[in-house]
């Protein structure tokens, strides 16, 4: 029972309290770059969720079955994790190119850039640093990109409304997006301390 409570705590903490974008300020490039319309935002979020969950699982397996027993854990972690992440990103890219060329075009350079997205490497390292077991790391690798999706959809919705509102000329585009991000981050700071 307490194990389930622990899992719920990890999920809420990784999704909302330690939100990867708004509290830890990782993965900002795709966050600001891709939120001008809702459809590419959702496509990017689904791609990130798929890549993070699958590479989180595989990275945990490699970490615990190969790197720790052979004593290579700190030295080879980055190489092994990036290898896993890059392969999954290649897979997603091939699939999207076939399944929905329009989304592939809309996402442009940000799709291959998932490979260097700090969120995904960050999740694999969070799992490793907190010494999560297998199920805990699956929950954490699902919760973190869900928090990313939450932040992305929030910003995309606000930016769609901003299109019809009067904002000063020099704030248009990315500048106002960063200011909104700051305000959203302040709002998310209210969740801090909910879980000890």
């Amino acid at each position: 029972m307490s194990y389930l409570v622990n899992l719920a705590k990890i999920f809420v903490s990784s999704t909302i309290i330690n939100n990867i974008v708004l509290i830890q300020f990782l993965a900002l490039c795709s966050y600001v770059g891709l939120t001008d319309n809702l459809s590419s935002t959702l496509g990017m979020s689904y791609a990130v969720i798929f890549v993070t969950v699958s590479s989180g699982i595989l990275a945990w397996t490699i970490d615990h079955w190969i790197l720790i027993p052979t004593g290579l854990q700190p030295a080879l972690q980055i190489t092994a994790f990036i290898l896993v992440i890059g392969s999954f990103v290649g897979l997603v890219e091939m699939y999207l190119k076939k399944a929905s060329p329009n989304l592939y075009k809309a996402m442009g350079i940000y799709l291959p850039l998932i490979a260097t997205n700090c969120l995904i490497l960050g999740v694999t390292f969070i799992n490793s640093i907190h010494n999560y077991d297998f199920i805990e790391s699956v929950v954490s690798s699902f919760g973190v990109p869900l928090g990313y999706m939450l932040a992305m959809v929030m910003l995309a919705g606000i930016r769609e409304r901003l299109r019809n509102s009067e904002i000063p000329q020099f704030f248009k585009g990315k500048a106002i997006a960063f200011m909104i991000t700051g305000i959203l981050a302040l709002a998310f700071l209210g969740f801090a301390g909910m879980i000890k």
């Binding site: 490699i62 190969i66 052979t70 004593g71 290579l72 030295a75 080879l76 190489t79 092994a80 290898l83 896993v84 392969s87 290649g90 897979l91 091939m94 699939y95 190119k97 076939k98």
Partner: peptide, 28 residues
């Protein structure tokens, strides 16, 4: 250590490369 790291990372690279090649043919 060097031999183990070359074998593991090289092995993973080979496996993933092979799988990606297969998928590339499939999703052509």
């Amino acid at each position: 250590d060097i031999i183990i790291s070359v074998l593991t990372i090289g092995g993973f690279g080979a496996i993933f490369g092979l799988l990606l090649g297969v998928f590339n043919e499939k999703f052509k």
